Computed example of a mutant assay.
Amino acid sequence: MEALAQVLDDLVEIVAASEQDTTWAGTWDTGDEMIRELRDHAGRLRRGDGSTLGELEFLFLPTGPLQEVSISSGWGDQFLVLAGRFDRARASARRGPGAGE
């Protein structure tokens, strides 16, 4: 699950680098709230806790909260790259330990 956590770390770097327009997301009021939630997810993944993977999958959906924020905040292309990495890491995690995560 480390690969999933790394995607979230990279996402936090982008979010922390500038102000975020969370108007359309409906999930967070501020970029700081986004960062706190993403760091919490990353910490859980690093501890081997996959209980919030469903929530993460929702956040990364096309036209989901993360994509909405990314588009309105000017980093939509970067989001697409991260979403691709997330999808690959999630598929690897589903196959289980040692499956090329």
Rank of each mutant, 00 (worst) to 15 (best):
D21P: 07
R47E: 15
G48Y: 09
G31M: 04
I71Q: 05
G100E: 04
G54E: 12
I35S: 00
F60V: 05
A16Y: 01
E19V: 06
D87R: 15
T63H: 12
V12C: 02
A3P: 04
Q6K: 13
G48A: 11
F86V: 06
Q78L: 11
P65E: 05
A5L: 01
W28D: 01
T22P: 02
R90W: 09
D77V: 08
W28V: 00
P62V: 09
L8W: 00
T30F: 05
G31E: 03
R90N: 10
E101P: 10
A25L: 05
L11V: 07
L38K: 02
R36T: 13
L80G: 09
E57S: 14
L82A: 07
S18T: 09
F86R: 03
L59H: 07
A16W: 02
F58C: 07
W75Y: 14
V69R: 01
G74Y: 07
Q78A: 14
R36W: 11
A42L: 02
G43D: 10
P65L: 03
E33C: 03
G50H: 13
R36E: 12
R85V: 10
T52A: 14
G64P: 00
F79Y: 12
G76S: 11
G100V: 09
G54Y: 11
R39A: 10
P97L: 10
E2Y: 08
E101N: 14
G100S: 10
A89I: 08
L66D: 00
E37R: 13
L53H: 06
S72C: 09
S73P: 00
T63S: 11
D49Q: 12
L61N: 10
L38E: 01
R88D: 07
R90T: 10
G74I: 05
T27M: 13
A3M: 06
E33F: 03
I35P: 01
E19M: 12
A42Y: 02
T52Y: 07
W75H: 04
L61T: 05
E55Y: 15
V12R: 00
G84P: 06
G50R: 13
F86D: 04
S18A: 14
R47C: 08
P97K: 12
D9Q: 11
E19F: 04
G48E: 12
G98N: 09
L59Y: 08
S51E: 10
L4C: 02
T30H: 04
A5D: 02
V15S: 03
Q20M: 09
D32H: 06
L66I: 05
I14M: 08
I71N: 06
L59K: 06
L11Y: 09
F79V: 04
Q20H: 05
R94H: 12
G31Y: 01
A93E: 15
A89E: 06
E101D: 15
S72M: 13
E57M: 11
S92R: 14
E55I: 15
V69A: 01
D87V: 11
F60W: 08
A91G: 15
I14A: 04
A83G: 05
